[in-house]
């Protein structure tokens, strides 16, 4: 993976496979404290304590087609090489929270990358899943909640071309505004 936003896309897919109907992503960049953290919280099927302990092992996976699962191990390696790490807590039947932290200015920290593309792909592909996304850079912040958007859209789907274009612009504008230096 070349960007943290690709790790985020990958890990959020785990939530969706776990049957989550709501996935929340909190992303914060604190340049003063030199740390970048994100946490992904879902209401999917959760994992047993044993699974939580072994899931960072690349030879652990819930899929049956193959014996390796690389998503979480890759994220863990990416975080640890910057002096950060990941924490994982989960409860069967309730959901999972995964948090990752990175040394912001560490030479080995991957760039955050294109968060707009990550969120656009997720929101338009999974009509039955709602997303809450908060992104903060120092004191600048924006948030979106697809439940509010769905209310405005009524029966119109996120996959409608015009909605997709709007969402793409909305995300790009808001992401860019976070980095405008005052």
């Amino acid at each position: 993976m070349k960007e943290l936003s690709l790790h985020i896309l990958d890990i959020m897919q785990n939530s969706i496979v776990a049957g989550a109907t709501l996935v929340e992503l909190d992303l914060a960049e604190d340049r003063e404290e030199d740390v970048l953290t994100f946490s992904i919280t879902d209401n999917g099927c959760g994992m047993s304590t044993e699974m939580v302990e072994t899931v960072v092992n690349p030879f652990t996976t819930s899929r049956t087609t193959r014996k390796v699962g690389l998503g979480i191990p890759l994220l863990k390696a990416a975080a640890e090489q910057t002096g950060g790490g990941i924490t994982l807590s989960s409860k069967l039947g309730e959901g999972t929270v995964i948090t990752a932290s990175f040394g912001y200015s560490h030479i080995d920290r991957q760039p955050l990358g294109n968060m707009a593309e990550t969120m656009l792909g997720l929101i338009t592909s999974y009509e039955s899943v709602d997303f809450v996304y908060r992104h903060r850079v120092d004191t600048e912040e924006y948030a979106l909640d697809t439940r509010e958007m769905r209310q405005m859209l009524g029966e119109v789907s996120f996959a409608e071309p015009q909605v997709m274009l709007w969402l793409s612009e909305f995300l790009k504008e808001n992401e860019a505004a976070l980095y405008l230096v005052k």
Partner: peptide
């Protein structure tokens, strides 16, 4: 800047 209110208009147009 895009706002959520835009969605209302898109909805009307799309439904047609």
């Amino acid at each position: 800047m895009k706002t959520l209110a835009d969605l209302e208009a898109i909805r009307k147009k799309t439904l047609e």
